[in-house]
Design a protein around this nucleic acid. Structure first.
Lengths: 135, 135
DNA sequence: ATCGATGCAAACTCTTTGCATAGCA
DNA sequence: TGCTATGCAAAGAGTTTGCATCGAT
């Protein structure tokens, strides 16, 4: 997803356009990589002196809800990245730089028949390690 | 793993036997279910009036290190359960009661050749939903 | 003009740590 | 006796919330 698509989704849902939101979206559109609230704040601080964690957290939460960002929890901290595609997939995640690589296939395909009496409503499959650059 | 095995591991590693540790281990040995520090404290409070979170957290961390407990992070909170077996496996986890069911097979078997230049050192596969009892 | 967005401050949750004391070996 | 375990208190990190003001539409 690029910035324009994200802004369109925002507008569609009745939310306002602000410079801060635009910069947040630019930050995530730059790379396919999981990032934290702290990293976003660091990125924005030079241009928005008074930027606060409140705004960051509120927008990350909103973007997550709207399907603009996807999130995962790593080491007790929420990480976000731009939603890459609309089809279901999972990721390799680099522990050092947060870069992600899409993994083909979903383990649920071969699992659901093992859990006949269970109501499945979610699952998580993530592979962690170091990307070629960080090794 | 049962309480005796866990206490043996503790002793082996040079740690002391205390009533609190015994009760913590009994709590986890009772059921195959992920539980939080808070739930453990609630369970212990009636019998140990002065029991503190410090002791709970310190022991959970220790037991995790020693391979007595296994842990996962759900909703920003660490959950622990007694290590069920020694072979590699994954879990279905009930969102309501925390009960777990072992899933056969590991998705990594069919994934590692997709990530040739990546150094893989960990992965997480969990299925969430409601167990038959909680539906 | 209206209603959402933001900053400020405070609070909240989960967890960790320093230090003195209590307790196992 | 010696060293670990524990409780107390405080602090820390990440996150959320109430309220007044600012700003987009």
């Amino acid at each position: 997803m690029n910035v324009e698509q994200a802004l369109a989704l925002l507008k569609e849902a009745g939310y306002k356009y602000t410079d801060k939101r635009a910069v947040i979206l630019e930050f995530f559109a730059e790379q396919d990589r999981y990032r934290t609230a702290k990293e976003l704040l660091t990125y924005m601080s030079p241009n928005f002196e008074g930027i606060s964690f409140d705004t960051i957290y509120r927008n990350l939460h909103l973007f997550d809800q709207l399907g603009i960002l996807e999130s995962t929890e790593l080491g007790g901290e929420k990480h976000y990245q731009m939603c890459c595609t609309h089809h279901h997939h999972h990721h390799f995640i680099c522990k050092k730089c947060g870069v992600t690589k899409e993994i083909k296939g979903c383990p649920m395909d071969s699992v659901s028949n093992e859990l006949n009496n269970f109501m499945i409503d979610d699952h998580k499959f993530e592979v962690y390690g170091l990307c070629p650059t960080c090794q």
